[in-house]
């Protein structure tokens, strides 16, 4: 439980910070693609028989670089992402079928935990690894927050002012890949999009000040994780991943309702 809280907090914070920029840059589909790629990488690692994390991180970072390379200025076109993504899903199916035919006994738990996460199964080494990756991701985001913000809001002006827009795009996508691979361990490859999208959506709703919104997004993600872990530990029949994503969705809905009533009251 302690490991779940420590690891979960680290993972949620990096998801919140990265998610804010994903939404700001309208690159959430890239995040979606990278999160699904994580499961292909994980199944590939399982099929070959190496450590799960090698596949998760290797796959996500490689595809992040590929997507950055294929798009102009370090951000790929929707259709290009969709094409790569669809193929990677197909590869995931291939590895899954190889894995299920060769490792029949362990397939149930390992496969489901890749797709939907198993945060209560975090042990000491995996927790510290997750914390380490989260520190790298958060430090990276904070270090490049200002230029990245400039490049995201107005790319043309930023590059005219000498901001390395393309390099920032690459670096950011690599951070997204790391986050996706890490969060896949906690909430699963299929559900981590909720941790990327919902806290960032709440922050974008509640404040227009970018730096405040960035922190708010991180805080909302962490709070979501804590509530999710608490409910998940009390109601043991409900999977914790579902509670975490459910709480994130409810918070987002509340933010939408609060702000839309406020906005309609002004005019």
């Amino acid at each position: 439980m302690t490991y779940a809280i420590v690891g979960g907090t680290a993972i949620a914070l990096s998801c919140g910070l990265v998610g804010y920029f994903l939404v700001l840059r309208s690159q959430l589909f890239t995040g979606d693609a990278l999160s699904h790629v994580a499961f292909t990488g994980a199944f590939a690692a399982l099929a070959i028989g190496v450590d799960l994390r090698v596949g998760l991180f290797g796959g996500a970072v490689a595809i992040a670089l590929l997507l950055a390379f294929m798009g102009s200025r370090g951000s790929a076109d929707d259709v290009v992402i969709g094409g790569v993504f669809a193929w990677v899903l197909g590869l995931g199916v291939l590895f899954l079928s190889i894995f299920t035919t060769s490792h029949a006994s362990t397939k149930s738990t390992a496969g489901v935990s890749v797709l939907f996460g198993s945060i209560f199964a975090l042990d000491a080494p995996r927790t510290w690894f997750a914390v380490g990756v989260a520190v790298v991701v958060c430090a990276g985001i904070i270090a490049m927050a200002r230029p990245l913000l400039f490049a995201s809001v107005d790319e043309a002006v930023a590059s005219a002012r000498g901001v390395p827009v393309r390099a920032l795009g690459y670096a950011f996508l690599v951070l997204v890949g790391l986050t996706a691979a890490e969060a896949a361990q906690a909430v699963g490859a299929l559900l981590l999009l909720g941790l990327l999208a919902a806290p960032a959506g709440v922050a974008h709703r509640l404040t227009a000040n970018p730096l405040r919104a960035l922190w708010l997004s991180g805080v909302v993600a962490v709070v979501t994780m804590w509530i999710g872990l608490w409910v998940g530990s009390v109601a043991s029949s409900v999977p914790p991943s579902f509670v975490i994503v459910g709480v994130a969705t409810v918070l987002y809905l509340v933010a939408v309702l609060v702000t839309s009533s406020r906005r309609s009251a002004i005019p």
Binding site: V23, L24, R25, S26, L28, F29, G31, D32, L115, F116, G188, L190, L191, L192, L193, G194, L195, L196, A197, A198, A200, G201, H204, R205, V238, P239, S241, F242, V245, G246, A248, T249, Y252
Partner: peptide, 24 residues
């Protein structure tokens, strides 16, 4: 547009989470 993607992403994750809940 950015806001719209946040909504779609949340919907998608929530839908998949619901699927996992029903399934378990």
């Amino acid at each position: 547009y950015g806001e719209e993607t946040a909504l779609i992403g949340t919907l998608q994750a929530f839908a998949l989470a619901l699927g996992y809940l029903f399934h378990s």
